[in-house]
């Protein structure tokens, strides 16, 4: 069982959260010419790191806020959780 510390609610069990994927993926900027390669990069290609991984989680059965988690994909250890804009 993962225990995730929501930056708003504190430590809760994994059951209350849903996963949102790699937090380092950036959407191409709106209003600019975007190449197929940029879209491909954004939509499909992932670094898929082994080790420290910055990712988005959603406290879906709690405060319903999105936040960032720094977690090891090798051991599942959670190093820190922060608000999305931190």
């Amino acid at each position: 069982m993962l225990e995730i510390k929501c930056p708003y609610c504190g430590k809760r069990s994994q059951n209350e959260f849903s996963y949102g994927g790699d937090a380092s993926v950036k959407r191409p900027e709106l209003g600019k010419e975007i190449s197929d390669k940029d879209w491909d990069d954004f939509v499909y290609l992932r670094k898929n790191l082994r080790g420290k991984h910055s990712e988005l989680w959603h406290h879906v059965a709690g405060c319903r806020q999105w936040f960032k988690v720094l977690r090891s994909t090798a051991t599942h250890e959670i190093f820190k959780t922060t608000k999305v804009n931190e």
């Binding site: 069982m1 069990s13 059951n15 849903s18 082994r50 990712e55 994909t73 599942h76």
Partner: peptide, 13 residues
């Protein structure tokens, strides 16, 4: 399990 992982083990939920 629903999150990126290279650990060859999962969780009970």
């Amino acid at each position: 399990d629903g999150y990126n992982s290279y650990a060859q083990r999962g969780n009970l939920p």
